[in-house]
Amino acid sequence: MKVHQIMTKDLTSMEKDALVRGLIFTLDNAGMSNMPIVDEEGKLIGFISEKDLIKAALPGYFEMLHSTSFIPDMNQLVKKLAQIADDPIEKYMQHNVVCVEEDDDDLQAADLIIRKDLKSLPVIDKDGRLVGVVKRIDLLRHLL
């Protein structure tokens, strides 16, 4: 099966100058855990996840502890998040995006999602424009 046959056809995305505050609002309301970043042509240029935001607010914790349950004081996270809320997301996004093309095989998407421990994977067309995402649940739904 091809990726375009299993992907979620959703183009929810942001441009790199969007603010962290807006990103958190959309992630929260749309029930997403990460966001593709596109340019004015709709081409995929970056990716940002909840994890990237927590890393930005509390640099070092992930490397040291691999768990936020060890953070001694949640106020630190609150304060740091408030400090970065009006920063552009470009500052914290991943520039080297792991993605697949719409005509790639579903196995390739599955391999990337499992191997890279991703919750979702952006899908692009031949021109590099975002056309959807493959989520873990998309794979499970189509395997059943």
């Binding site: 056809k9 959703d10 183009l11 929810t12 959309t26 309301n29 749309a30 029930g31 056309v131 959807g132």
Partner: peptide, 24 residues
């Protein structure tokens, strides 16, 4: 927006429509 917004988006995706909504 909200719970009903999710229902709208889910229905459209199930129908094969590509969605691109702004959440409010």
């Amino acid at each position: 927006g909200g719970h009903t917004g999710h229902v709208v988006v889910r229905d459209l995706r199930e129908e094969g429509v590509t969605t691109n909504f702004v959440w409010v």
